[in-house]
Design a protein around this nucleic acid. Structure first.
Lengths: 193, 193
DNA sequence: GTTTGAATTGAACGGGTGTTCAGATAACGT
DNA sequence: ACGTTATCTGAACACCCGTTCAATTCAAAC
């Protein structure tokens, strides 16, 4: 029978993922050894294999979880393109600023995924991009947006919004709210009819 | 006296940098061994050390060369903010599409630089960003741009423009010229008074 | 207090790492 | 033809890699 108190399994498991997240983000998947992750957790390397089948799966699970949360956490829905676009932009920034390490990994470690894992993450990313493009297309159809190419605008806007994570620092000159306002202003201008 | 014909030094040196560039971009600095680079060149690992003091310098030289070329290759200069901004945007896209591997490395491998090397690359990057911001500030002063925050606009525009490298594929739906036109349209909208 | 079994250790496996260097190779100036 | 020397090899150095597994630990269950 499984121990329910005093057992370390339920604390060590998350700790392993947290340590891997932190170290992968700071130094990169390839540069971090299982022994370093284990040391961060306070355990020997062998013990990690009670919580993940291997190093690759540790990375993949972090990335898949991030992409699935991103998709689950936001659904447009109002049908009014301007409102939907604002919601998308503000949500994207907030979500990314809340999870800098996960965002960093999701963009940087794609090439360290096995081919099958890469395909799965790419499919999730495509679904997210498609949501933004659907909003843009709806706005063009309604005549409230003027966009020469919705696919390029999608890529351009996501790159612009995600870029916030490269320079934003907590306690800096601007708070999240102000950053959200300014970026929403720029997004709106890009698509404005 | 140095041999000037039949000597391999002058071909092997560039080949080492080319192989490192290609492999670092595809698989990442940490994941590529000196032996793999040597195999790509067609030489034993030891021979690489005739052309670079160590692996770290091989990475650093690639990145510094890229940033210095980027700075040397473009100077704004006209004094007319709209024309300067268009030149900046079109040059940024063209330059980045011409050197996808170097761009990729310059953005992905920052964390694998030794602290001193990191500082130097960061300084070069800052100088490039400052050039764009100077154009934006000049446009605001002239009343031809309406930009709530030139620093944020700088970061947003660079992220947007650099993002082209993540999706552009030679022979795809749009040519470089068309992509340049569409992105310049979006850039102009972001800053338009 | 004893049994039980999940959690963990620590050593081992085969192999790869960046770097060094004595020695072999071969094209050059003479 | 010869000696010089830039170029390169191949082995070695000390160390780190991801992963496995028999043995140990120790809290929970009885």
């Amino acid at each position: 029978m499984a121990r329910t108190q005093g057992s370390h399994a339920e604390t060590t498991g998350p700790k392993v993922r947290e340590a891997a997240l932190k170290l992968f983000a700071r130094e990169g998947y390839a540069a971090v050894s299982m022994r370093r992750i284990a040391a961060e957790v306070g355990v020997q390397a062998g013990a990690l294999y009670l919580y993940t089948p291997d190093k690759q799966t540790l990375l993949f699970d972090l990335m898949r979880g991030h992409m699935e949360d991103l998709l689950a956490d936001f659904a447009p829905g109002s049908g009014r393109p301007v409102a939907d676009l604002e919601a998308f932009a503000r949500h994207h920034i907030r979500y990314h600023l809340d999870r800098p390490d996960l965002v960093f990994i999701a963009y940087m470690e794609l090439r360290n995924l096995d081919p099958d894992n890469f395909r799965e993450i790419e499919a999730l990313r495509r679904r997210y991009e498609d949501r933004l493009e659907a909003i843009l297309k709806a706005g063009v159809a309604d005549g409230v947006f003027d966009i020469p190419d919705t696919k390029l605008a999608t890529m351009a806007l996501i790159a612009m919004l995600t870029g916030v994570t490269t320079w934003y620092r907590e306690g800096g000159r601007l708070g999240r709210e102000a950053v959200g306002d300014i970026y929403w202003d720029m997004v709106r201008k890009v698509v404005r009819a």
